[in-house]
């Protein structure tokens, strides 16, 4: 498996986004539950970080939180999300937050989502967005949009004049990318960039993402459940389970030698091109529901083959076992 080349040692890169002690909770009829609990993460400038997890792991919530857009009944209960040259976005005023979104950091949505106003043309909506951020030069914006469209192998003039219902899923996702990049943000989040796409489109999308990331010196964050995307594209990977980070490491290291039992199980579950098929083992059990997440002890213990009594009693701390490689497990497991 190929992984993206590292540009420079990570400890030397500046930190673009610093998440400290983040907790996001949801108010339900039976009480307040943490979908993300005490999460801390440093995202370095110029890196491509993948956040991987099963459904319910909290990865999508994390993406929304990174734009301070957790939807009701969820809310950021505690913690700080610091962007370089901006500050802690959890403390920004509504107007500053609005300007921050789309201009400093932007999100690319899934292919399956209808993220455009069905009543307006693509070009008109692009202008709406630009105008909202104070860019009044219509021609310049439309030119930028057309350039980006062509970059993504889309027919520029047709797409700009199109309504959402005239575009296919793959096209819509690329349009979503155009919107995300049009104002030249520094940080780009991609929510499940390959889900709901066929294999050829997936490959194409990943190529585009990598190329644009390098061209524009972006800091990219990928949300995914697909280990293949991690391998193909990312420098670093963060493994999430039940709202907490299980392992946070350079992709190559995780893929070759995962330390956390969950990460190991994820790798083990991937079928290889060669060798017997039953070498791939599925992880038994199902991801936890919000209300079932234990507050004390390791959240993964119910599905862990190496469970000890300490796992039930003490919550493991996410710590560096090797510089640049964090894991949250009571056992230091070599693979």
């Amino acid at each position: 498996m190929k992984s993206a080349p590292l540009r420079r040692p990570l400890s030397d890169s500046e930190i673009e986004v610093s998440i400290r002690g983040l907790s996001v909770s949801y108010q339900t009829s039976t009480g307040l539950y943490d979908a993300i609990h005490d999460l801390s993460l440093a995202i370095h400038r110029g890196s491509i970080t993948a956040i991987i997890g099963e459904s319910g792991s909290g990865k999508s919530t994390l993406a929304m939180a990174m734009l301070n857009s957790v939807t009701f009944p969820g809310q950021i209960r505690m913690g700080a999300i610091d962007y370089a040259d901006v500050g802690d976005i959890t403390g920004l005023s509504a107007e500053s937050l609005r300007r921050f979104r789309g201009e400093h950091a932007a999100m690319v949505f899934q292919a399956s989502q209808d993220t455009l106003n069905p009543l307006k043309r693509v070009g008109a909506q692009l202008l709406d967005m630009a105008r909202s951020h104070g860019h009044r030069d219509r021609k310049a914006i439309l030119r930028e949009g057309s350039l980006l469209a062509e970059r993504m192998s889309l027919p520029a003039s047709r797409v700009m004049a199109a309504y959402q219902h005239e575009l296919s899923g793959g096209m819509r996702q690329r349009v979503s990318m155009i919107f995300a990049l049009a104002l030249k943000p520094r940080v780009v989040l991609l929510d499940e960039p390959t889900t709901a796409l066929d294999v050829l489109s997936q490959s194409h999308v990943l190529q585009i993402v990598r190329a644009i990331h390098e061209e524009r010196h972006l800091t990219t964050v990928l949300i995914t459940h697909d280990m293949g995307v991690v391998a193909e594209l990312s420098d670093r990977v963060v493994v999430m389970y039940a709202g907490r980070i299980m392992e946070d490491a350079p992709s190559q290291d995780l893929l070759r030698a995962p330390r956390h039992p969950y990460a190991k199980a994820l790798i083990r579950a991937i079928p290889r091109l060669t060798g017997p098929l039953d070498r791939a083992q599925a992880l038994p059990g199902a991801p936890l529901e919000l209300r079932q997440i234990p507050v004390v002890g390791c959240v993964f213990r119910d599905r862990c083959t190496l469970r000890q009594s300490i796992c039930d009693e003490v919550t493991p701390v996410l710590r560096e076992v090797v510089p640049g490689h964090r894991t949250a497990c009571h056992l230091e497991v070599e693979s």
Partner: peptide
């Protein structure tokens, strides 16, 4: 609850524009 409203918010559209997006779609 439509996704494009959330997307508009995440793209930093002004409140006025968002309200117009909602209104026109709601009238249909």
């Amino acid at each position: 609850g439509d996704e494009f409203i959330l997307a508009a918010e995440l793209r930093g559209l002004t409140r006025g524009l968002r309200l117009r997006y909602i209104a026109r779609n709601a009238f249909l």
